[in-house]
Amino acid sequence: MSDRSQLIETGKPFAFDAQRDAEFERLATRYPTRESLILPSLWLVQEQEGWISAEAMAYIADRIGTYASMVYEAATFYTMYNLQPKGKVHICVCRTLSCYLLGKQEIVDYLQRELGIKPGEVSADSQYSLEEVECLGHCGTAPVVQINGEFYENMNVEKLKDLLATLK
């Protein structure tokens, strides 16, 4: 894992929008402790903004009533939380075991060439971001790629080409 602890500050305060605010209050009734809201709150921020800034973490901590360091720990520990803005098309290529055996590297190499970015990076025009992720639990249909949350199975370079064209 690379260091995820260098947080980005937007310079503006953060707050939940009305929908997230209501959802937060609803979730607060589902757990006996406030700390349990840390992971769900980080997801709410990510749903709202696409990524999680330092201000958002501070907001969550104060809203929940816990230490900012607790939120900081969770945000950096769990790799699905985006701590920087991602591309409009966020491509996650599974890199483990079966996907590895069935050609994930070809897919990664193609995307690197095509999009001009390495795993972990965002393209200059903010259109694309690329990541290699660990086993996505779709081994029977490897190689598998997850783009903006959707699973695309039995992928190869050809199919990926077509897919990216449709996602533009």
Binding site: M1, T66, Y67, S69, Y72, E73, T76, F77
Partner: peptide
């Protein structure tokens, strides 16, 4: 609560 251990694996600090 000012201190925490962030990241995981040997990136933890």
């Amino acid at each position: 609560g000012e201190l925490g251990i962030v990241n995981r694996t040997d990136a933890a600090r």
